[in-house]
């Protein structure tokens, strides 16, 4: 099996080549990684590349969409009717609850005006679908089927019917990447509804669990407390449910108590989410009032001049 040097040459190997090429490519990779890590130098390149490869994502997602469509189309008439009735009932209940909302909202606005404070209520939402793509099993990242074209921008919050889902981390042409609130790198500023106690809910890498690591042992928090977004930090609109406190362990000898919460959003079952667009007028206010926050990611965004496509959008 040992080849003579001449034969080696014949088959196209170069003796000194691979090592040099490896060193060059490794150096180039390291340069790329450093640029990618330190800021947004490569966002445009990444956007172009992922735009070129986005058909691949759709190909991977296609079978799952197909199964969904088949399931919808092959459902029995009786099942559809039952489902329809169920939805009608839900709509009735929700509408009944909403009747009081208008009055409450007006009252709230009046009170806030008295207190001279503004609140970032979201102006507009857009329905986005989560593609069935497993980006990195160790992280909780998802791909949405909406991108720059729909006015999506990094930093935007994602919600579902039950609560906060996550936030957009990177926008591409037709898709966007988002981080779930359970990703170990993610933190949501929250407050306890019962007493207004503020803290941060960190992801744990487990879809069913959030952790609240920064609470002192004497903090007033107990199992069953509802956590909502506090709106601090500017990434998330205030007042959306984040989760319910499941377990408080202050028996340990540590300075901080261990508090676990269960996310309100059904993170392991969702297929559709709502992208929240902060209200333009309100945001104009808050930008004037407070110094610009670079981490918030809602600096002059393309969302402002996005076409009002009506499809899938709703006023809240």
């Amino acid at each position: 099996m040992a080849l003579k040097p001449a034969e080696h040459e014949q088959r196209g190997y170069r003796s000194g080549g691979p090592g040099l090429r490896l060193i060059l490519l490794v150096a180039f990779s390291i340069a790329l990684m450093v640029l990618d890590q330190r800021g947004q130098h490569l966002d445009q390149a990444r956007r172009t590349l992922s735009g070129a490869f986005y058909p691949l994502l759709y190909l991977v997602d296609a079978p799952f969409t197909l199964v969904d469509t088949l399931r919808e189309n092959l459902a029995l008439r009786s099942e559809l009717l039952a489902r329809n009735r169920e939805l009608d009932e839900t709509l009735l209940l929700t509408n009944a609850r909403l009747q009081r909302m208008a009055a409450l909202e007006a009252e709230n606005a009046r009170l806030r005006a008295l207190l001279d404070s503004t609140e970032n209520l979201p102006g507009r939402v857009l329905i986005a679908e989560i593609l069935s793509i497993d980006m990195d099993p160790l992280r909780h990242r998802i791909v949405l089927n909406r991108g720059l074209r729909d006015g999506v921008h990094a930093g935007q919050a994602l919600i579902d019917a039950e609560g906060i889902v996550g936030q957009v981390t990177r926008e591409h042409g037709r898709t966007a990447e988002a981080l779930l609130i359970t990703d170990p790198d993610h933190g949501v500023p929250v407050e306890v509804v019962r007493n207004g106690l503020r803290t941060v809910a960190m992801g744990t890498g487990d879809l069913e669990r959030l952790s609240l690591p920064f609470l002192p042992r004497n903090a007033d928090i107990r199992a069953g407390d509802l956590l909502v977004t506090s709106g601090l930090g500017g990434s998330f609109p205030a007042g959306y449910p984040v989760g319910t406190v499941r377990r408080v362990d202050d028996s340990a000898g540590a300075a901080f108590s261990e508090v676990d919460a269960e996310p309100a959003a059904r993170l392991n079952r969702i297929r559709e989410v709502l992208l929240v667009f902060p209200d333009e007028v309100e945001r104009g206010h808050s930008i004037q009032d407070s110094p610009p926050d670079p981490s918030a990611g809602d600096a002059p965004a393309p969302a402002d001049d996005a076409p009002e496509t009506g499809n899938g959008e709703a006023e809240t």
């Binding site: 490519l25 490794v26 390291i30 990684m33 990444r46 590349l49 490869f53 691949l56 980006m135 990177r170």
Partner: peptide
């Protein structure tokens, strides 16, 4: 690009492996 990891991470590990 597809997995959204650091640009160059898989590129580096795979080129070292193939070397």
């Amino acid at each position: 690009v597809l997995q959204g990891s650091l640009l160059g991470q898989h590129a580096l590990s795979l080129s070292v492996t193939s070397y």
